[in-house]
Design a protein around this nucleic acid. Structure first.
Length: 916
RNA sequence: GGGCGAUUAGCUCAGCUGGUUCAGAGCGUCUGCCUUACAAGCAGAAUGUCAGCGGUUCAAAUCCGUUAUCGCCCACCA
């Protein structure tokens, strides 16, 4: 074995080996009886094929793999399904951007078919990359079950889900105000918008009365929308404007007549002029007002955001130009009253970074009220549990709004909506006739459903078959060109991946899944919708638990992003520190906190490439190396299989290490049960490093007896099991070296805590004795005595240390160690108080009185101030009366200990003073 | 505006049911060591108004209120 752990070869070796041995597959695939086992299943939050994985993915997938490996070792039938998401708008946007950069072409130059072909190519490339990254991380997914949200299996689920919702009336089509991306020409969701504060203006202008008798002053930040105004609203109680209510105004430039209306909801009397222009087709509040007052909704924009024919002379102008032209026009016609600077929020599209326009268009929606209600219940009644629990609120708040979900996107990349519009052109005699024809065609077909939309259009939904334009005589069927919001297929993910709507073995064996591991920013977008669709499609919840992993930020508390250049590439970290190191640090970062900071620094590689790294990963690498070297040392002493029977051990340290080991097993189990991953990492880290290496191994290494070998072997063997979920590669490798005849770690049984071996008394006793070692070491440190230089020590204590004498000698570098009750202090000794006694280290010729006096004084000072507070507490009648007896006893004991320290230290001080 | 969270050592963070883990870990710093598993290491050391204020309690880093600062989510800003 090399003196340093070299992760590279070992990682690729085990990746190959596990894969060849099919170790990532659930037990039930090979063995029918395994179906009876308790299942444990996870479906991966599918990474978007927009790009490579980042550190957030590394964290998310590390946690999933830890859970899968742990439960697999618990003997459960464990399945982790991997896959990727087509990510609709996001992927189309990156490919379109690339297309423009490389070829100066737009999607319209290519056409739908060719563009989609290009996106598939992109998808293939990135899916392969993501898969390879997941593998390098050590993710033990069943790769044979890998899915893609746009693959035929998922597509079938989408068709069935859509058809079902359509048939039940949960899906409707209507003209609604949506967020319109004028660059990508599609509706986008509220959450695909970010807001930017920009410096704009607040223009106040005259809205002239139609009868020429005056005007109402109105202020706006978006003067170009004047052209789409269909009313001006004032507050019904506003004395200034009351008289105008019901009168008619003329829209400047286009001279349309519009009413003055009274609306207490829209109008804030105190704000601006106290009068509001109403543009129902281009503002959400105005839209609502329009509905309240039954106002016309006048669309003044084209799909690309330019003004349309309704804008009259301004037709064709877009954005700032349109605004400037309108302002100029107002000024020229003497209508402009005032211009003020005004800061405002502008919504921009996540994908195109261009301004979002509220835009009235025909879209598809899912009616949310009933569906949301049921999904809320699943969390309220504890069927679905969130960890940390507070995130349930997030979920409930969002669902509580029950806003209908706009599921249509005017894109080319995605699941095309399985709806065919009935073109009326070939129909001879009106609406009734269409309905009759439809009924005639589809009467006995359970796979077709149709209805008439709000606008009178007939819509036909087909479950499986794509309908031809001339499929039925007398009908002309045109497929709806829209695709579904990417979250529609994501919402089906837990069951679509398992083959729903088929009644598959996987659904029987593994559904509902055990836990969903995800980030908090998609609780509403994704988690809630999965619950809804699962309940609707299967009548079951999709997962029992939701674990929300923290968000990784850089050292300054910022999100990692390409534009900031602060992102850490997991592959760089795997390359430099190893996957195990990366995983260990990811696991350590999973505390209850919602954020985890990772200080990032630049590093230039030998090949000149600059990468971002973080010192934090050294912890993981160093830990692996520590374990590696402990194993290397023990490799020649390993005896037996690593199992521990009921060996009798007389020695304190042996009983201690067994107790510690079993305590650790228990602690880790507890950590898993509560999703406390950082605690898991910390517990195993300190057991290996401090208990096993710094203490037990150091005690034993001088002379390793057969019995010790067996116990050391057992400890290490168990550590390999306990650490495997976090650091699978090194543990599997060490196991193959040290215990070549044992079953591989990935598969073998997780250790059980033997409660009989846990002995708090022994652990305490050991700590007391180890304190002697620490006291002597501290003296050595104080006088810079080289480890090679032997010294002697005396312990005045009633404890019988015969059993531990050699251990104390070895660990403290003593040539001689004497102990006994009331032993006198040797001359020129440094002294220190321990539990139930005192330790003396004779240092003739080395001892410095001043150093000792200073140290002892400090001890006394500390103890005395502690005594004051203890006395205060103990003399408090209420404390003695109310506190539990054990606590009072504890305080009394503390007091005695502190008094002992003071007494002994003072005696030592006195003596030092006597020997100048 | 509504909701959630954070503030503990120079840095990154633990600290769960209030008291026997109660002020901790890792990194960094300082001192001494290449002691035959490990210098990616060993031994020792220094460092804190637990954000401020108030309250509850016999007892508060921990519970409550409040202020400040920072962050996130949701809604909205003619």
């Amino acid at each position: 074995m090399e003196t340093r752990y070299n992760h590279k070869e070992i990682e690729s070796k085990w990746l190959k080996n596990w894969d060849e041995q099919k170790n990532f597959k659930p037990a039930s695939d090979a063995n029918a009886t395994a179906k009876e086992q308790e299942h444990f299943s996870i479906v991966i939050p599918p990474p978007n094929v927009t790009g490579a994985l980042h550190l957030g993915h590394a964290l998310n997938n590390t946690i999933q793999d830890i859970l899968i490996r742990y439960n697999r070792k618990l003997g459960k039938n464990a399945l982790w399904i991997p896959g990727t998401d087509h990510a609709g708008i996001a992927t189309q946007a990156v490919v379109e951007k690339r297309l423009f950069q490389d070829e100066k072409k737009t999607r319209h130059d290519l056409g739908r078919e060719e563009l989609v072909k290009r996106i598939w190519k992109w998808k293939d490339e990135y899916e392969a990359r993501i898969t390879s990254q997941l593998k390098l991380l050590g993710s033990s997914c069943d790769w044979d079950r890998q899915r893609f949200t746009l693959d035929p299996i998922c597509a079938k689920a989408v068709r069935y889900a859509f058809f079902n919702l359509f048939k039940k009336g949960f899906i409707y089509r209507g003209k609604r105000l949506v967020n319109w991306d004028t660059h990508l020409h599609t509706a986008v969701a509220d959450d695909e918008i970010y807001h930017e504060t920009v410096k704009g203006h607040f223009w106040t202008f005259k809205y002239p009365l139609a009868d020429g008798s005056g005007y109402i002053p109105v202020a706006t930040t978006r003067p170009e929308t004047i052209l789409g105004d269909t009313a001006v609203a004032v507050h019904p109680e506003d004395e200034r404007y009351k008289k105008f209510i019901g009168k008619t105004l003329l829209v400047p430039f286009v001279n349309r007549e519009i009413p003055v209306i009274a609306d207490a909801i829209l109008v804030d009397r105190e704000f601006g002029t106290g009068s509001v222009k109403v543009t129902p087709a281009h503002d959400p509040n105005d839209y609502a007002t329009g509905l309240r007052h039954n106002l016309p909704m006048l669309n003044i924009l084209n799909e690309d955001g330019s003004l349309n024919e309704n804008a009259g002379e301004f037709k064709g102008l877009k954005g700032e130009k349109a605004r400037a032209a309108v302002v100029e026009g107002l000024e020229k016609s003497g209508l402009l009253l005032k211009v003020e600077d005004h800061e405002m929020q502008v919504g921009k599209s996540d994908r195109s970074k261009t301004i979002i326009e509220p835009y009235l268009s025909d879209q598809w929606f899912v009616k949310m009220d009933k569906l949301a209600e049921r999904a809320m219940q699943a969390v309220e009644n504890g069927e679905v549990k969130f960890t940390p629990a507070r995130y349930a609120k997030n979920y409930l708040n969002w669902l509580g709004e029950k806003r209908d979900w706009c599921i249509s996107r005017q894109l080319w990349w995605g699941h095309q909506i399985p709806i065919w519009h009935v073109e009326k052109l070939r129909v001879e005699s009106g609406e009734l006739r269409v309905e009759e024809i439809l009924k005639k065609c589809f009467l006995n077909r359970s796979d077709i459903h149709f209805y008439q939309a709000e606008n009178g259009d007939w819509l036909v939904c087909s479950l499986e078959k794509d309908l031809r334009e001339d499929e039925f005589e007398g009908l002309n069927l045109i497929r709806d060109p829209d695709v579904l919001d990417t979250w529609f297929s994501s919402a089906l993910w837990p069951h679509s991946t398992m083959g729903w709507p088929g009644e598959t073995e996987d659904l029987k064996d593994f559904y509902p899944t055990s836990v969903l591991v995800t980030a908090r920013d998609i609780i509403s977008l994704w988690v809630a919708r999965m619950v809804i669709f699962s309940q609707e499609n299967l009548g079951k919840i999709p997962f029992d638990n939701v674990y929300i992993n923290p968000t990784i930020l850089d050292g300054l508390g910022r999100r990692m992003s390409k534009s900031l250049g602060n992102g850490v590439d997991p592959l760089d970290i795997i390359e430099k520190y190893g996957a195990d190191a990366l995983r260990f640090v990811m696991c350590s970062m999973c505390t209850e906190n919602q954020e985890a900071r990772l200080p990032v620094k630049k590093e230039i590689l030998e090949d000149g490439r600059e990468i971002n790294v973080s010192e934090k990963f050294e912890i993981g690498r160093n830990f692996g190396n520590k374990l590696w070297n402990a194993a290397r040392f023990l490799s020649s002493y390993i005896v037996g299989s690593g199992e521990w029977g009921v060996g009798s051990c007389a020695k304190l340290e042996d009983r201690w290490v067994l107790s510690r080991l079993n305590t650790v097993v228990r602690q880790i189990q507890n950590a898993f049960e509560n999703y406390r991953f950082s605690e898991y990492a910390a517990v195993i880290y300190h057991f290996v490093w401090d208990d096993l290496c710094s203490r037990y191994l150091e005690i034993k290494k001088g002379e390793i007896s057969k019995e010790s070998s067996a116990l050391l072997s057992h400890s290490l063997y168990t550590v390999l099991d306990l650490l495997h979920p976090i650091m699978p590669f090194i543990t599997e490798e060490l196991n193959s070296i040290l215990f070549p005849n044992s079953q591989r770690v990935i598969l073998r049984q997780w250790p059980k805590a033997n409660e009989n071996l846990i002995d708090a008394e022994i652990e305490k006793q050991f700590e007391d004795i180890f304190a002697i070692v620490e006291v002597i070491r501290s003296v050595r440190g104080r006088y810079s005595i080289a480890p090679s230089q032997k010294i002697t020590a005396v312990a005045s204590t009633s404890a019988n240390l015969e059993n531990c004498k050699n251990m104390i000698k070895d660990l403290s570098g003593l040539s001689d160690f004497e102990f006994g009750e009331n032993l006198p202090k040797p001359a020129f000794s440094a002294s220190a108080v321990i539990a139930g006694g005192e330790v003396f280290v004779p240092l003739e010729g080395i001892l410095n009185e001043e150093t000792e006096i200073a140290r002892l004084n400090k001890e006394v000072e500390k103890a005395e101030s502690f005594i004051i507070s203890l006395n205060k507490k103990l003399s408090n009648e209420n404390f003695v009366k109310n506190a539990p007896a054990a606590v009072i006893d504890g305080e009394r004991q503390k007091l005695a200990t502190q008094q002992d320290i003071v007494e002994k230290s003072k005696a030592a001080l006195k003596e030092l003073a006597a020997f100048p």
